[in-house]
Design a protein around this nucleic acid. Structure first.
Lengths: 218, 218, 218, 218
DNA sequence: AATGAATGAGCATTCATTCAT
DNA sequence: AATGAATGAATGCTCATTCAT
């Protein structure tokens, strides 16, 4: 935050370089729409959100929305993508902070959990609303979860190579982790407790413990 | 009206035992509707399923459906409940076969996983469609998952007491388990692989391993 | 008219013969819709007619219309067909009154002309509105005109055989006749004059004269 | 605005002759639009043609179109007028080649028929699309047909005076001729056969024959 | 118990037109 | 002269629900 306060990228550097470095007015409006849509969709779900409401939220006419997005459906997808992009970036950044593969995986996981735990809206859209539509939509949720799973899996693979964890099916493990997060977050969303941050420690214990080398006798 | 005033031959068994042992015609129709609805909902999701379609499926008129169920919403809930009831029973039965608490929990979990893995329809409705509606509906999914979580948790609690597993937050553990199942099943639903039965072993390894006593050094 | 006053077909003879002789309630409503649609379409043209208006005209809800017709487009086609059917019947009946082939053709032609000349609504829909839409619709107009042309042509063919008229291309002749009617009626529709009935004599003279073998004295 | 205040080099020839001999840039663009519109309207009909499409066709923005034409409706009218003007000129030129009144009328008629027969686009717009709109538009078609009718009628009147043809109602006769052309062309448009050029001889035979005083030997 | 015709509120999408630049 | 983002009125169609029989 503070870092941003000094040098700033100028809003409309009209240069011969074209749009490479600039954010056009059109893009800004598009972004405002995305923001408003995110809010409305998170609050009311896809079906109960009206294009009119989103338009009102951005102080734009309904037609204005349709100038930027071909359909309500497409708009929803764009919202999901934007959220996922951000979350993936954060998760990757968190992973980059760590050195050991297992720690990287763990960091990514926790980053996602805690971030979802802080932003109900984000959580609602990513975890829940993705299902709210026909077949076409469900695929989107799967796609996005897949992206997260990839990150986790890649690190787990490294961890296996490094001998940090047992030689389990890392793809399944990655989905187990995500599934766990999903469930915890949803439960929080609907029952209000426990907050993801509170559940984090137990969750980490169970998940990590499930993979580490020390073969339990049982 | 007038036609009804005369005595008519009733085609359903009227016994003094009341409805305890008999299945009235009405109940049979209700059940047929439920079955048809289950199919349609599973295939097309709540919003894309039309009451007309369900009616057609049961060879009943739309009005006929409404004689048995007050609303489409209610019908959907009933379908979910019926499915959940059955699944819970199976899970409990599976648990009853085992003796050690951990084994009971594990058995219940696996039963659910494998059963979902065998019936896409069941899985789709329970795992996915529950979200497909407004706020009111989402709660249903949470409620049902809660029932499963309860069973798991109860057994895990016993397992803790028995010293079979570490003293973790069993509520969270239960949800981790369910979340894992959920994710694996959804992935299978959309990507077709791995089949739950195939993933079962890895899954079991990871989840059980995450709880058992043998403290790993890490 | 008067003929109808005595013996009448009963509205709902519920017999074992089923619907063969009866007009069901549904069919009556369908017919009322057709009538209202005919009026609205004739007055305002296809595009400027609203389904709402038609509904209002029949005192039915918009949904009611859609219960009977799958789309506005289909409704319009049905209106055209109904009108064409009637007109074709009349034309055939008129032809049947005559004995010589040429007289038959002539009678059919005149019947159509005069009937259109009496009912602006009929004329507007058949002659003009058929074009009011995309490709799909234009074909309808062509189809209907084709039906009329067939009748004329068939009789002209006979007339040729009978030596009543010259051996011209009867298909073209039939279309010339229809084109002439079309133009006269449209002109009347828009300029109000001359009324088809007034133009009939001149028209007949020109058209028949164009075909007969020798200078007819008539 | 400020930029415009300075004197600028004008790229269009400004002569004292005004616009009589020069075609301004603006007029050229206007013409290009007209050409593109003609194409689009002919292909898709008025309602299904979008201003956007026409704009794209001319490589102009939608706003650009509106700088030259006040409305889509007006643009369509202009297209019709342009086409009609050309066709009228040709018809008149063709008539001027002949000497006898009847031959003049006949020449004009044939010119129109054959020219329409060569250019589907022209035919579609003039014969069919004129109806494609509300009341206001239909009048245009009537107006244009009226112009053609006038030419025919004037010559027929002369022919009557000259004793070439019978003393029929020339207004009606003119419309009969046009109606015949109309129908033949439309039939060709939709059924592809016979081509106007092929039908011309039969058509001429029937129409002329319908007017001439005695059985023409021709 | 069931039918099926009818309701009516609901809504996404279209597109000609405008206007600041 | 031209752009293109934005407007906003317009409207066909859907579908859960009702209700007279």
């Amino acid at each position: 935050m503070t870092a941003w306060s000094k040098p700033r990228i100028i809003d409309r550097p009209v240069s011969r370089l074209g749009n490479i470095l600039t954010t056009t007015q059109k893009e800004k409006t598009r972004d405002r729409i995305l923001g408003a849509a995110e809010q409305v969709f998170a609050n009311k779900g896809y079906h109960e959100s009206l294009v009119d409401e989103i338009a009102e939220e951005v102080s734009l006419s309904k037609g204005g929305i349709y100038f930027h997005f071909p359909s309500k459906e497409d708009l929803f997808f764009s919202v999901m993508d934007r959220l996922a992009d951000r979350l993936v970036s954060k998760a990757e950044a968190a992973a980059a902070q760590e050195t050991s593969p297992l720690a990287k995986a763990e960091a990514a996981l926790m980053e996602v959990l805690l971030r979802l735990g802080k932003r109900r809206r984000l959580a609602r859209i990513l975890m829940v609303q993705g299902y709210s539509m026909g077949k076409a939509f469900e695929a989107k949720r799967v796609e996005i979860f897949g992206r997260f799973a990839e990150i986790i899996k890649a690190n787990l693979d490294e961890a296996v190579k490094a001998g940090e964890i047992r030689d389990v099916d890392t793809a399944i493990a990655a989905h187990v982790w995500l599934g766990a997060i999903n469930e915890i977050v949803i439960r929080w969303l609907y029952e209000g407790t426990p907050q993801p941050a509170e559940a984090a420690e137990s969750l980490r214990g169970i998940l990590i413990h499930g993979l580490v080398v020390e073969e339990p006798t049982r």
